[in-house]
Design a protein around this nucleic acid. Structure first.
Lengths: 341, 341
DNA sequence: TTGTACGCGTTATCAG
DNA sequence: CTGATAACGCGTACAA
């Protein structure tokens, strides 16, 4: 048995590439990481050997020696199944991949405790950066990321005291702008349907924006015109039914989430309620389907993909050595006016 | 400067935990990985030290020494933004997390070449397992996974010769069953709208299933009744408009993707076409919104979450030492009959 | 431009 | 049940 101790014919190591290329392992390492620091002859031989052996570098070893260059980043979103976060993730991975950085992904299920334990688990792999959608954290999270000493980007809301880097938009300003818009369209009795404020900072901020706009316009705040409910088509439908029963009549409903607005629109279609004549509907986040209804839905466009892209860019600046406190980035939002209002 | 060489007060190492707990590093390692192999006194002291130092183990070092236990798996889906894949990912991460395994994620953009280069990048991190949605690969992929020597699970289609493990359903059988169902409902001129077959094995199989059903029922195959188009609401709308212009009249349309069926339904609503009276509509994959229309859409339920869960389970069996060729798992499908047909 | 020696943090092995 | 020692595969520092 001419077995060289290695059980199966597995992955080649750098040493074997070196042997085949007739150079030292160090030259292989250099040829792979900074090709301009070796002679073209060495480069050629190394590349040939790499190809022939199907060599796949071992980043575990590399990362051990040179932490902060593991070429692995981590991201945590509240839910994997929400298309909003998916768009941000796409922007993130697209931008990171250009630099050879891969992404570890997990979901917190909207729980701060789950976020903390997930971060701890991720840090065990020594990622070179961390992206968190949430902006509200346990004390443990602050300690973990401080000790980790890696760039952290938050993306969910334009907060005042971020952990580190911040790329987002103002949930408050967006909700306020949409409510202002409805007021500008002469709607007076405007209802609000959003996610449960106590569970979620973003939901809280949106509700606050709605109220600020009403107050600024001199309109009263009525308990019966604010509904908190988990986001789903069904709950959007239930909310519109409930609101249509309120007297005096509700003129417009701002759904702080397109999933709710769409559910409501479907319900209106089913019941034959005319939008916007009987009730106007506004959404939040411009899902593709919102513009495809017979009466397309007025909504807010948030540049989700761009948030991911710019989060990556910010992280990369840190990895490239920039040390100072980089200023937060506000990607803004845009009201998309359609027939539903 | 009392600096002990370490620049900042960063992550504690196992050695420091050992020092504080007054045991050897080896005992710390054991206490963490197999608590029942150390005395309860040692265990207690180690746990205390870990807590006090906020120790986060370094899996890079662990993985270097003990490959195949990096506690990191990798998954590649065609697109991050498709909710179908998101459901599978959720099942996957939920199941893996119970075993402390985290997930690296990327998208191939429906390209086999992109899949190959992504796999190579992922393998550099020495994942202990790999999940691929696609079932059609470049030769390079076969070589890479063979050399990697890790479990690989494919999830996109019930193929005959999987790379290794397989958890999926038969796209062919599902499409055939739906077409059979439509035939059973006495529709005769049945059209098919699906993704572009040349780009995607799953699309190909669904189209094949449709044809097989028609042929078995003695119905003719007509060119004009098959449309291939990228999946989107808009393309679903265009397809139904095109098909409504065909003479003699099309009686039912099977959209091999709910996004297409929903786009078509929205278009019918807009134009006032009655479903199923003027044309019946069937979909594929039971998106939540499909059941919320005034006329809810008949569709196919694929247990996407379960696919992820079982893919994880299969991978774990391998990691737990099972060697043989584990048989493919067929999770099946279910026709959900609603008013649209 | 290239090579040598050593160390990164952990675990397998084996002796106590 | 515990500890000493030697890898794991690569990168830094320095020497040639």
């Amino acid at each position: 048995m001419p077995n060289k101790k290695r059980p199966a014919a597995l992955q080649a190591r750098m040493k074997e590439v070196a042997l085949r290329a007739k150079v030292s392992a160090m030259s292989v390492s250099r040829a792979l990481r900074s090709p301009d620091q070796v002679s073209s002859e060495t480069l050629r031989r190394v590349q040939k050997a790499v190809r022939e052996l199907g060599y796949v570098p071992n980043r575990l070893a590399g990362g051990l020696k040179a932490p902060s260059r593991t070429q692995l980043a981590a991201a945590i979103v509240p839910s994997l199944q929400n298309s909003l976060f998916a768009a941000t993730l796409q922007g993130l991975t697209d931008a990171l991949r250009k630099r050879g950085i891969n992404l570890m992904l997990g979901d917190s299920g909207y729980s701060r405790e789950a976020e903390e334990s997930l971060i701890a688990a991720f840090l065990a792999h020594r990622p070179c950066g961390l992206v968190l959608h949430d902006t509200s954290h346990t004390p443990g999270v602050r300690r973990l990321v401080r000790n980790a000493g890696i760039p952290v980007v938050e993306t969910g809301n334009l907060v005042n005291r971020p952990l580190d880097l911040l790329v987002s938009y103002s949930n408050f300003a967006a909700a306020r702008a949409m409510t202002d818009y409805l007021v500008g369209r002469s709607y007076r009795r405007i209802a609000f349907v959003g996610q449960i404020a106590s569970l979620n900072e973003r939901a809280r901020e949106r509700q606050r924006g709605y109220r600020a706009a009403l107050t600024a316009a001199g309109l009263p705040l009525e308990e019966a015109l604010t509904i908190e409910t988990p986001g789903s088509f069904e709950n959007g439908a239930k909310a519109i039914v409930q609101l249509m029963g309120v007297r005096p009549k509700v003129e417009a409903v701002f759904f702080a989430g397109d999933v709710l607005a769409i559910g409501a629109m479907l319900e209106c279609n089913r019941r034959g309620w005319e939008v916007p004549k009987q009730v106007a509907i506004a959404g939040f986040d411009d899902w593709e389907i919102s513009r495809r209804f017979a009466i397309p839905i007025t909504t807010l466009d948030i540049p989700r993909y761009q948030i991911g892209e710019r989060a990556a860019a910010l992280m990369l600046r840190r990895l490239d050595g920039e040390r100072g406190k980089l200023p937060p980035i506000d990607v803004g939002f845009r009201i998309i006016e359609r027939a539903s209002t």
